[in-house]
Simulated scan of single mutants.
Amino acid sequence: MDVPRTASGRPAARHRDKPRHWWARTLSWWGAAWHDFHYLVMPAECVACGRDDAALCPDCAVALRRQARDPFRAEEAADALMSVFGQTTLPVVAVGDYRDILSAAILAFKNHGRTELATELGRALGRGVEALPRLLPGTGGRELMLVPVPSTGSGWRRRGYDPVALLLHTLARERRLPPGMSVAPLLAIRPRLPWHRRKQKALGRAARRANVRNSMRIRRRLHRGARPAALLAGADVVVVDDVLTTGSTVGEAARTLAGTGATVCGALVLAAARSPGQGGGGTTLGRRA
Rank of each mutant, 00 (worst) to 15 (best):
R65K: 06
P71G: 12
L177P: 10
G140A: 15
A33E: 06
S215D: 14
N214F: 12
K18I: 00
Q87C: 13
A33F: 03
R217H: 11
A33I: 03
D162S: 15
D100W: 12
T260Y: 02
R65P: 00
P11C: 02
D236G: 04
V3F: 00
W195N: 00
V62A: 15
V92W: 06
D241Q: 09
R274Y: 07
A80C: 03
S154D: 14
D36N: 10
H169C: 12
L146W: 02
V264T: 00
L135F: 04
G96Q: 12
N211P: 04
A104L: 13
T249W: 04
P148C: 06
A13Q: 03
A267R: 01
I106P: 10
Q87K: 14
L166C: 11
L257P: 02
A271Y: 12
K110H: 09
L107C: 11
C49W: 12
V95F: 13
D241L: 05
Y98I: 10
A105S: 15
V237I: 00
H38P: 01
E252M: 05
P228Y: 07
G251C: 01
Y39M: 06
G31M: 01
A206W: 03
L270E: 08
Q87W: 10
A104Q: 14
P150S: 06
D2H: 04
N214A: 15
W30T: 06
D100S: 14
S151M: 13
S248G: 11
A118T: 08
T139D: 07
L244A: 07
F37A: 15
A184G: 09
C46Y: 10
G31S: 03
T260D: 02
T6Y: 07
T6S: 10
W195Q: 01
P163F: 07
V92R: 06
V239T: 01
A108N: 11
E116R: 10
E116P: 05
M145K: 08
A74H: 11
A124K: 05
R134F: 07
H223F: 12
T263Q: 09
P133K: 05
G50V: 13
L244T: 10
A24T: 00
A118F: 05
S103Y: 08
V164M: 15
A272R: 12
L203V: 02
R65I: 04
P178E: 08
